[in-house]
Design a protein around this nucleic acid. Structure first.
Lengths: 367, 367
DNA sequence: TTGTAGGCGTTATCAC
DNA sequence: GTGATAACGCCTACAA
């Protein structure tokens, strides 16, 4: 066992063949070109020497790095770890490896990372960054790089993408609240420059219409980002506006967490005074009090599917562009309750005893 | 602008020098070898052509990939995202890139990933996997690969490592509870094969001794993993044992979350009936009711420091092995309260009004 | 079926 | 200071 790892030459020498023959014997694609006997001799020699092909040399030769660049805003956002794992698991099974880049929503940073990945010859990209009119997209399109978009569409280009069906998810959220008897339902919308925010808003409007409920513009408020703080602000403004409402369909779990804080401050209780539905079913959201009713978003699967789509494009440039939507699922927990005192069950088991069950949330303006 | 990215030859041709000279001019380390004038000509040509050195070719030649392998158990564990970001941020600033591998605590998987990274010629490893007597460590030591351990020590080998001071953190936890007047303090310990579990247990014992409190063996229970379920089980067993106690120093936030559930089931309230201190200060733990008092663990910094240590080893094989401990910090929130009704403040502001402030938790055995 | 030769893009080591 | 040459390890026309 030499210190230096065995190379193809070593294997060839051991098997008494030319390196080229050894190469063919070891490569599944070309093994048919070589005779049974030598193929076996080479394979055995390779095993004996503990031969590992050098991926760097191979990359240089084949111009493929077996590496995929993944751009996300921030790994600390709890939505992303499962997505990244999905990507890695699926890609690893195909011999690819992930290069992860956090853009922090900074498009300058995004471009730098993109270029660095490009310099490293990544074979394709998964883009989960949410900026519209992205120069990275333009460049990727120009250079015909394999790209899969996550959770966003880029109508101007022809990229494969995989998203959860945001619109449908929010319709489910509204339908659930309507079924509980709520009629005055508010919506805390996500940023409208982000496709998830926009889609969920559309879903809210569609859901209200489908349930035959009136849409009040003053019951829709838009957060500037998916943060706890924005959730608190929006919820507080909604409450202070004096517009009466008994439920809120929130565009995101983080925002919903912020709502909890605002309700605390206002001395209101969920779900007694106000029903709340989130979106994402992020980890530990079921550990809050009350556990949040929310729309589950299949994060891990989003990753595996994105990986699959990308692999298709990477291995065959001519494979068709696909737009994939994954269905969300409503998870009913303790943050939603029927509007009226009597009957009904919140998925939680025990029926909450409303303190002010019939009261409409919202502090009327002093008058 | 040709379709093919500019190569060093192109730059050399444009600058009318030999490729070797162009290489020297462009490499900061060797620029001094080349005359001022040509250096500038080459640089300008490089800029004009948009030249990007090909890292694959460079790797092949220099046998350095500027790539670091990072092995963690599971990215979904909320402790790891900030650590990984710390690693990536620091490494990126030095031109390195992270290859992430999730072992899921499976040492077979760990070894496979390790080998694959090795085949890709990573320049070093950050190992955050917690298995004792790890074959990967043995191999890394044998081959003298640069390695930094996170949150664990390997006494048998000479590796740099960075950890939070688990013992000190748990001493702080106990001291806090003792200061609140608690004397019968239980400990839910982490797995003792993992260095964090063991260190925190030692810290608990040391802390009790330092506060002059008696240690009761039946008030120490060991979880088989850092999971919510194990937390629930341990807490329940503690309660059912009938051993009286008024506070628990828990080895991990996940376990503490499980304790919340067990308390719910038993109809007990935190902190009124039982004070609880966690460990880690994981994201959103401050959003639980009550917000968890816990020992903060500087995750992000753990990542940056590990990266720093590794870079030192990678760039200079002779640099000394360092064992680094980062100090934890106690974050007082609402899950701890003074034992007696009167006075005292839980960092939360409002003094909780104990329902059964003096009652000792634990259901006495029917007798 | 196997061997030959050349090159992927870069840098280390010579010589000039 | 700069140029020439070779080599990192592998793959693939092409020739035999």
């Amino acid at each position: 066992m030499p210190d230096r790892p065995a190379t193809l030459r070593d294997v060839a020498a051991a098997a008494r063949v030319h390196p080229a023959t050894a190469s063919r014997a070891l490569n599944p694609e070309t093994r048919i070109l070589v005779s049974e006997g030598t193929a076996r001799r080479v394979t055995e020699a390779a095993v004996a020497l503990g031969y590992r092909p050098n991926p760097v040399a191979r990359s240089l030769r084949t111009r493929k790095s077996h590496t995929i660049g993944v751009l996300i805003p921030d790994l600390n956002n709890p939505l992303f770890p499962p997505i990244v794992r999905g990507l890695e698991d699926r890609l690893a099974s195909a011999g690819y490896v992930v290069l992860l880049g956090n853009t922090d929503g900074d498009s300058g940073k995004e471009q730098i990372i993109f270029e660095q990945m490009r310099a490293r010859h990544v074979d394709g990209y998964v883009l989960a960054t949410a900026h519209e009119s992205n120069p990275v997209l333009a460049e990727a399109a120009r250079a015909e790089l394999p790209v899969v978009l996550m959770n966003r569409l880029a109508p101007d280009y022809s990229f494969s993408s995989v998203s959860a069906d945001n619109e449908q998810g929010m319709r489910m959220s509204v339908a659930h609240l309507a079924a509980l008897g709520h009629t005055r339902i508010a919506h805390i919308a996500g940023p409208q420059q982000i496709s998830t925010g926009e889609g969920r808003r559309r879903g809210f409007l569609a859901g209200m219409k489908a349930s035959g409920l009136d849409i009040h513009d003053d019951l829709i408020i838009t957060a500037s980002g998916y943060t706890v703080e924005e959730g608190t602000r929006c919820c507080r403004e909604l409450l202070e506006s004096g517009a009466g409402f008994t439920a809120v369909a929130v565009a995101n779990d983080m925002l919903a967490v912020g709502c909890y804080a605002a309700l605390d401050d206002a001395g209101l209780r969920c779900p007694d005074d106000l029903s709340l539905v989130g979106f994402n079913d992020m980890p530990f959201i079921d550990r809050l009090r009350p556990p949040l009713t929310t729309v589950r978003f299949p994060h891990y699967q989003l990753g595996t599917e994105a990986a699959q789509l990308l692999l298709e494009r990477v291995t065959n440039r001519e494979s068709p562009v696909k737009i994939l939507y994954l269905a969300p699922e409503l998870i009913v927990r303790g943050s939603t309750a029927p509007l009226v005192q009597a009957g009904g069950k919140s998925g939680q088991g025990a029926v909450p005893v409303p303190l002010h069950g019939t009261r409409t949330a919202g502090i009327p303006p002093a008058s």
